[in-house]
Simulated scan of single mutants.
Amino acid sequence: MMKTTKRSDRIDLRIDPKAKETIQAAALLRHKTISEFILENAMGAANEILAERRHFHLDAKQWEAFQAALDAPPRPLPRLERLMQEPGMFDGPEQEA
């Protein structure tokens, strides 16, 4: 049995009649409503795009270079070190003991 979730959010979409006819014909061929067809295909595209950002493939040479970069000690960043020493906007006035 498939678990269903309550749909409470709505997306309004304005398209020209020809585009609607095309989507409606494709949805009909898949035995789906227009909403089901659009949601299924939009989720597929969204997951594919997000996966491109989460996963990447490297050959052996690229993997070794990636590992070396991760294992390398951090390079000094004097400007960042100075910035981190400055009081921030949420730091109160320094009190001397």
Rank of each mutant, 00 (worst) to 15 (best):
D12L: 12
K18W: 02
M43A: 10
K18G: 05
A51Y: 02
K3N: 11
E40F: 12
Q67K: 13
R14D: 04
G92L: 08
R75F: 06
E52T: 10
P76Y: 11
K20Q: 12
D16Y: 12
R30Y: 01
L70F: 05
P74S: 04
R14C: 02
Q24P: 00
I34P: 00
I49G: 04
N47V: 03
Q24G: 03
I38T: 09
R10F: 03
F37M: 12
P87G: 07
E48V: 03
H57V: 15
Q67P: 00
F66M: 10
I49M: 10
R79H: 07
P78F: 10
K3I: 05
R10Q: 15
P93M: 09
S35D: 08
F66T: 08
K3S: 07
K6W: 01
E94F: 13
L39G: 00
P76C: 03
R10P: 00
G88M: 06
A25I: 08
M1W: 00
D59S: 10
E52C: 08
L50F: 04
R10T: 10
A25P: 01
F56W: 10
T33E: 04
S8V: 08
D91E: 14
L28W: 06
W63R: 07
R82Y: 02
L29D: 05
S35F: 10
W63V: 12
G44T: 15
Q24L: 13
E52S: 07
W63E: 09
G92M: 07
R7A: 07
A19V: 07
D71W: 01
I34W: 00
K61N: 04
F90C: 06
H55E: 08
N41R: 14
Q67C: 07
E40K: 01
D12G: 14
A51H: 06
E64K: 15
Q67E: 14
A97Q: 13
R75P: 08
A42E: 04
R82E: 09
P78Y: 02
D71M: 02
I34R: 02
E52W: 01
E64I: 13
E86L: 14
Q95D: 09
M89L: 05
L77A: 11
